[in-house]
Design a protein around this nucleic acid. Sequence first.
DNA 1: GTCTATACAGAGATAGAC
DNA 2: GTCTATCTCTGTATAGAC
Lengths: 207, 207
Amino acid sequence: MTTRDKLLAAAAEALARDGLSGVSARAIACRAGVNQALVFYHFGSVSDLLEAAVRRSVDLAVASYRDRFADVGSLGELLALGRDLHRMERRRGNVAQMAQVMSGAQRDPILAKAGRYAMQRWTSEIEAVLARLLPGSVVEGLVDPRGLARAVAGGSIGLELYAGVDRAGAESALDTLDAMGAVLAALDDLGPMATRAVRGRVRRVIG
Amino acid sequence: MTTRDKLLAAAAEALARDGLSGVSARAIACRAGVNQALVFYHFGSVSDLLEAAVRRSVDLAVASYRDRFADVGSLGELLALGRDLHRMERRRGNVAQMAQVMSGAQRDPILAKAGRYAMQRWTSEIEAVLARLLPGSVVEGLVDPRGLARAVAGGSIGLELYAGVDRAGAESALDTLDAMGAVLAALDDLGPMATRAVRGRVRRVIG
DNA sequence: GTCTATACAGAGATAGAC
DNA sequence: GTCTATCTCTGTATAGAC
């Protein structure tokens, strides 16, 4: 393992565990077991190191789910995968990492770039699946796959932050979202005649 | 306006505008037009000042919506109010403020207390309305009012952070959530017989 | 209550020996 | 590529005059 890789791994870990205010060139280098000056030699600045680390994390994570995304055949299955994915990415610290980067993005344009990249990677992956599954469902034409993908990814970040101040509260929020998703998935399963009826009704009310 | 109040207002502004990494005793005092040492005289530490500022912001904001929450009579109206509220609170910077506090909460227990308090205030307000409106709707017994309130509040935080790195993306996410809410509100309006049919179907599928 | 001055810790970053 | 040493800046916090 090269020093570069050690720094990348340590940066990702530090960001997830200690948050933005807990990361510094010194803290990261210490965690990596190397000298502090090497952060600047290899990456130029702490922000640039963090950006590289986030890109690497998200690239690895997205790749590890590619197959499972491709296998999803229904909204119910997608829901189950989403629950799995969120749980796993939380355990890996990737959601926390994202949350910290996005909150730092307000001030630091380099972190903003990293956050934008990460969100784009996740949302485009989710969007592809939704674009495949939504047509034919009750909400076809009513719900935009891209917008929904973005809402899911963005909302996950918020729930992770919420979990940081109230674990049980965030869990109950996730359970409820699961339930609501299940309702939609069940509606999706109503049969063609009922689906048309519901859809028509919704269209009339929304206008 | 007392120095204390000037500091509270300046802290809230600084947090919303510049983010956690942009706030410091010096930055806040400068914005308030007072001396830096007064932060410590009046509040003891920067974190304690931030906590007080957040509590004040959320208390004011929640109070300003109390009447409108009480007037809501249907899920459709609640949806419209929610959209209004989120837009207004964003403009006031209160959502950004919350996002920063929650991301700093990972490291700082005082900020964690502030974040917990703020979330609790918002969610209990939303929960009360939902508890009044959900009974009789399609999702009665399937969706927990408290969990949904928490999901909405938590999700808003995430979408605000997302807006910080991709404004247009976050807008499209919000639009889509509006659309999904409208679908649920429309379902709510199906009439008793259809409602029973859908509910039964959903119950069978979910188990 | 408010100010000046200052102690002190930790940050980012660079220079230069090895 | 890696290390030591160091510069400089910014932050928190306190002491003490007014």
